[in-house]
Computed example of a mutant assay.
Amino acid sequence: MEGIKSIIDHFQNRDYFDEHYEWVNEHIEKHFPDTEVKVFHEIMTFDFKVHIHLIKAKSSKFDILITSGMSSLEMKIPQEAENPKDLRFAEMMMLIPKGIEFENVYTGDKKNDYIISMLKRTAKFPHQEDSWIGIGHSIVSDADFEPYGNDTEFVGGVILPSVTFDENFTKIKKDGRIINIYSFFPLYKNEVEYKINNGYNALLDRIIEADSKEILNPKRKNLIKKESFISKFLK
């Protein structure tokens, strides 16, 4: 009970922007009219609700997952960041191949639920930690680098700008506010470590070299080539 109380206390007396839920809905309807959209609602939570929209656009070769709720709270952007006012609100997005199916209700432990878990945990992280995330930031599932589910080896991810959609879609602008929609690129454990040790640009170079797409590949090859014992010895 003490843990629940601390969560409730952490999120009390915060300024909530509940209208952002509706802004995200309107944005999706504007860009994907007459498109099937399924929403995985978060019903019970002790912090704040993050819903997941599954957009099944017939005209594209992929489906889209977008969070709704991350932007209901303002992230704590450091003043030294460039244009901090424009970075306060964000939602997460992931493009997934056609054919990936989910159960009607998200529980976190069913087939493919790990994909939704990646977005939900990322969306909650900056508010739980009184921090922020933006382009180039990396994130892990937990302190132990555990995979997001039993059916994946992904343990974290990096926040990227979308290369599929332009700013007309990735920025919701209304009433003097901006809600940024960032793309989540999942990573294996050694890829997260590589990014931490070498920086965002080095990891981005690896992504480009591998010609990795923005669309999720659940079985993609590791970006970091494993060195042989001999090559390590010769260094």
Rank of each mutant, 00 (worst) to 15 (best):
M1L: 08
I4E: 05
K5P: 00
I7S: 04
I7L: 02
H10L: 07
H10A: 06
N13S: 13
D15K: 12
Y16F: 13
F17Y: 13
D18I: 03
H20E: 04
H20S: 06
E22Q: 13
W23D: 04
K30G: 12
F32N: 09
E36M: 07
I52Y: 11
H53K: 11
H53L: 02
K56V: 14
A57Y: 02
K61F: 04
K61E: 12
L65V: 15
I66V: 14
I66L: 11
S68F: 01
G69V: 08
M70V: 14
S71D: 00
I77P: 09
Q79F: 11
N83K: 15
F89K: 06
A90M: 04
N104V: 13
D113A: 03
Y114N: 08
L119D: 01
L119R: 08
K120H: 02
K124C: 03
K124A: 06
H127T: 08
Q128S: 07
Q128P: 00
W132F: 15
G134P: 01
D142N: 14
D144I: 09
P147M: 03
G149T: 08
G156S: 15
V158T: 13
P161W: 00
F165R: 02
E167Q: 15
K174H: 10
K174T: 05
R177V: 01
S183L: 13
F184S: 04
F185P: 10
V192C: 14
Y194I: 08
Y194C: 09
G199L: 14
L203Q: 08
L204V: 14
D205G: 00
I207F: 02
S212H: 01
P218K: 10
P218Y: 03
K219D: 13
K226M: 15
K226N: 15
K226S: 15
S228I: 09
K232Q: 04
